[in-house]
Simulated assay, not measured.
Amino acid sequence: MHENLIAYLASCGLESENQSPDAPVPSRNQTFLVRDGKGKRLLVKRSHIDGPIAMTHEGQTIIQLASLASEPNCPLILPEVHSIEPRLGLLVLGWLDGGEALNYYHWRTGRYPLALGMTLGRALGWLHRESRALRPSLGPQAFVEGRFGNPRPFVYLTLDNYARLSQAGLRFFEMIHSDDNALYELYRLLQYPTELTLLHGDVKLPNLLRLRGRKNQIAFVDWEMARWGDPARDVGALFAQYIRAWLAPQTQREKLDQAGVCQFLRVVLNSYRRQRGSAYPLERDFRYRAIRWAGVSLLYYVFGAIHNTEYLDERHSSLTQQAIGMLNDPYRWAWILLEAA
């Protein structure tokens, strides 16, 4: 595999910049920088689990969206696809100069400007509105249903997965499964009719980039989990990123007070609604679905944390209870976050 990878990069005139392509892989994906013959920076992504599927899927998603994102005043920025090599599970993308992931931006500055919330809402609203035009030509199976980010694992815990859980994992699932209403709401999210809109599928702050000199645009990266589905799912995932900064910040620099998170999320939702426009209005229950999807995202965050540490501390236990509360009573949480003065 290593020889094939080196040969492929050489055939494209690419030279590794920051590390060897066979360096230890800390996660299911590996990324490294290369330069082409003209010195242009490129990002190479390599998947070690389902590379041929995941990288081809991500590359084709970006290519299909690029034709729409080239329109004037589009708030969404996409990386340019340089090449796809399915046999090696490789995707080569253009480097986004001057980019800064939002998680680092918030940590570095401690700021949550409302103009950023407006841009985020516009970008998601644009994606969900414009991508519907792709559905007739691509068909319902053009984008696969992702295995991550949906509530199925919390509802259907197989014996095999149960046997692999740590003591912390067992306590985590016990908190969910002891609440019949929360389980029912998770099941209802699974049954919700799929709308004709494309989701990013992995809306979290490390995948959202501010670009220097482009204040009214935001870059979305890591499209490998894009799929058709309920648009409230993407919005809820974004909400969860900022709700966590209020309920359970990792550092004081990331902390948001209640007034700050409420104001920010209202701006996001109002901007999102305006971008979708009268031709694609929000359903009456949209905000409540978004709150429930935010709860699902928080559960995934906690599960990922305890999977790595095998320890369910007070912070993550409290966040689990809050997530269950969002599933059980999204009306109360919508009032707190989006409606209360």
Rank of each mutant, 00 (worst) to 15 (best):
residue 334 A to R: 05
residue 319 L to H: 07
residue 210 R to E: 06
residue 121 G to K: 08
residue 12 C to M: 15
residue 240 A to F: 09
residue 246 W to P: 05
residue 88 L to G: 06
residue 220 F to H: 05
residue 46 R to V: 05
residue 71 E to D: 05
residue 336 I to Q: 13
residue 219 A to H: 05
residue 78 L to N: 06
residue 78 L to T: 04
residue 117 G to V: 11
residue 192 Y to N: 03
residue 11 S to Q: 14
residue 291 I to H: 02
residue 320 T to Q: 07
residue 13 G to K: 11
residue 166 S to Q: 08
residue 169 G to W: 12
residue 161 N to P: 02
residue 76 L to P: 11
residue 237 A to D: 13
residue 210 R to I: 13
residue 224 E to F: 08
residue 329 D to Q: 05
residue 86 P to Y: 06
residue 306 I to R: 03
residue 241 Q to C: 15
residue 108 R to V: 00
residue 19 Q to E: 15
residue 331 Y to S: 12
residue 323 A to S: 12
residue 25 V to N: 07
residue 176 I to T: 03
residue 205 L to M: 13
residue 262 C to K: 14
residue 151 P to V: 08
residue 71 E to W: 00
residue 167 Q to L: 14
residue 272 Y to P: 11
residue 163 A to K: 12
residue 334 A to V: 01
residue 125 G to E: 10
residue 37 G to Y: 00
residue 167 Q to I: 10
residue 267 V to R: 09
residue 161 N to I: 01
residue 250 Q to G: 12
residue 106 H to G: 01
residue 62 I to K: 00
residue 93 L to H: 04
residue 128 H to M: 13
residue 168 A to N: 09
residue 134 L to E: 06
residue 80 E to S: 14
residue 268 V to C: 09
residue 5 L to S: 00
residue 266 R to T: 09
residue 236 G to R: 07
residue 308 N to Y: 11
residue 92 V to K: 00
residue 34 V to G: 00
residue 314 E to R: 13
residue 13 G to L: 11
residue 245 A to Q: 12
residue 305 A to F: 12
residue 189 L to K: 01
residue 114 L to M: 11
residue 93 L to F: 04
residue 27 S to H: 10
residue 278 S to Y: 03
residue 154 F to C: 06
residue 62 I to E: 00
residue 265 L to C: 10
residue 288 Y to S: 07
residue 238 L to T: 03
residue 71 E to G: 01
residue 27 S to F: 09
residue 275 Q to L: 04
residue 27 S to T: 12
residue 96 L to I: 15
residue 171 R to I: 07
residue 299 L to H: 07
residue 146 G to K: 08
